[in-house]
Amino acid sequence: MNGWGKYVVLALIVAVATHIVVIFGTPTVLMNVALQRLGGGHYNAWHLGERVTQASRTIVRPAPDFAYSACPYDLSNGPVRIHVTPWTDYWSLSLYANNSDNFFVLDDREAQNGVEVLVMSAGAAPPDHETATIVHSPSQRGIALIRRLAPTPDTYAAAAQVSHADVCSGAH
């Protein structure tokens, strides 16, 4: 290849590679940022978010009508056990892999009395006699999120009180 051709080819190869890296890497990078922001580097514990206001800048497009509790989880030391305390109105538990996929969601229609979930690594065998709902996470790290419908300051305060009974901890 003569002249400028080889340089143009190199530029195009680098451009395509950069494009692919950015597109595929964006969800993982943003999820890692969210993991840090929501948990401050701490894993396997619930963090109740303050009521969403103009000052809320942790996650884009937050809904001011919900009380959010987030648990960044890490399965590198084994399964993580999650317990969600029921709420008087809509609530849901959703799990997100480190590429942002919402791979599990359950709401109060399916679990009126709350739920206990054991989050395990992909392919891990569940313990014998386990009564919790078994969920296999596609990634070692991810985020568990509880949404409780609480559109007013009073309902938010009540939801915050209820959230103290939620559990997110290593199962060992």
Binding site: V22, I23, F24, T26, P27, L30, M31, A34, I59, V60, R61, S92, S94, Y96, N99, S100, D101, N102, V105, I143, L145
Partner: peptide, 13 residues
Amino acid sequence: RAIIARYGLLALS
């Protein structure tokens, strides 16, 4: 996935 992560991270399915 990248667009959702940028504009609606932690959206429900």
